[in-house]
Design a protein around this nucleic acid. Structure first.
Lengths: 201, 201
DNA sequence: GTCTATAAATAGATAGAC
DNA sequence: GTCTATCTATTTATAGAC
């Protein structure tokens, strides 16, 4: 099982950094220190391997979001937990944001119905938090799609930025300066609640 | 020159939709209704073609941002104009956000020094608007990198989302619902100013 | 400027020995 | 489970005729 896990991890990191088409099976094998034929022993083909990576991360997100929604907290705290949860998950599975955003940008051509259902589930749950907050008089009315973009977009883009910063020769550029994770969470929680808040209209 | 332009446009759209590695020169030729050899007549190679697309869009952004910064308006209006300008530019060059975000996610391995300078210029100019607003007592202090993420991130992610929505079989998903451009601009201006505003702390 | 044909390298995938 | 060798298709790129 160690081999399979090594392949999975190497694939996740490689797909995240270079995209599905930017990664060769040879490259994954090399990165995992595994013979290429072993990849085909453990997985049907390159696409099946990719799909497992995507499904794994979306299941993790779905579970976490579900847990937050079921909490008895007020909606604004749930939204804050949602933001923190996403950042947390990016720590666990650093490949998630870049794979996700690429997949969306390409029209999710490689995702099956189950995986699309997971994406839908996260969005719908988030929309539920908005409705809850509006019903409680905490949030203003806002297009849920745009609110979702405002919440996820900066997190996705920042994860991409961190990748660039890690590349040699980029670190000195001001936009690639390091930002502590705690600062990111606090900023995104504040920005999201300011965006949704009913006060100050 | 018509041929060269057709190649440029086909390449921009294809790179945007599938990434540098996801596009073959054959595919670009087919999309441009041009013989493949013509691509190599007008451009050195695939990478040179890609770089021209990226440079073109970053020059356009740089020029626009510069124009906004030189305006005698107060900082909050400049920031609103910055947001509107980006959306506008996405209308002119719809390939810009997805190429940009991918390039960042990959650590900009294909960009030369001049192009990186253009990216830097946009960020630094935006940072100048923040400082201006803070000096005028309009904006709260905020990490410029995070403010930049909050401003650009949703626009980038939304552009990616619109691509997915355009794909067949995605339109019915709630998160891929159509959002009028005017709504996007208004939402992003409001969200950005709320994020920066000194009132309500 | 435009085309056909093709060279040279790389890719995904598998057969078969151990 | 693991490896070597290899098949086949695709891809970048160019030579050379028109």
């Amino acid at each position: 099982m160690a081999t399979r896990d090594a392949v999975f991890l190497a694939a996740a990191e490689a797909f995240s950094a270079h995209g599905f088409d930017g990664v060769s099976v040879d490259a994954i094998a090399a990165r995992a220190h595994v013979n290429k034929a072993m990849i085909y022993y453990h997985f049907d083909d390159k696409l099946a391997l990719y799909r497992e990576v995507v499904r794994d991360m979306l299941r993790a997100i779905g579970a976490r979001v579900q847990g937050i929604a079921e909490t008895p907290e007020p909606a604004d705290r749930k939204v804050s937990a949602f933001v923190a949860g996403l950042v947390d998950l990016t720590g666990e599975r650093p490949w998630f944001p870049t794979i996700m955003i690429r997949e969306i940008a390409e029209g999710a051509p490689r995702l099956d119905v189950e995986t699309l259902g997971l994406i839908r589930h996260v969005f719908v749950t988030f929309g539920g938090l908005l409705a809850e907050g509006q019903a409680a008089g905490l949030f203003r009315p806002v297009n849920p799609v745009l609110a979702y973009m405002s919440t996820l977009g900066p997190l996705m883009f920042n994860a991409a930025r961190e990748r660039a910063a890690a590349q040699s020769g980029r670190g000195h550029l001001p936009m690639f300066a390091e930002v502590p994770r705690a600062d990111l969470v606090r900023h995104m929680q504040e920005a999201t609640l300011r965006m949704l808040s009913k006060e100050r209209e």
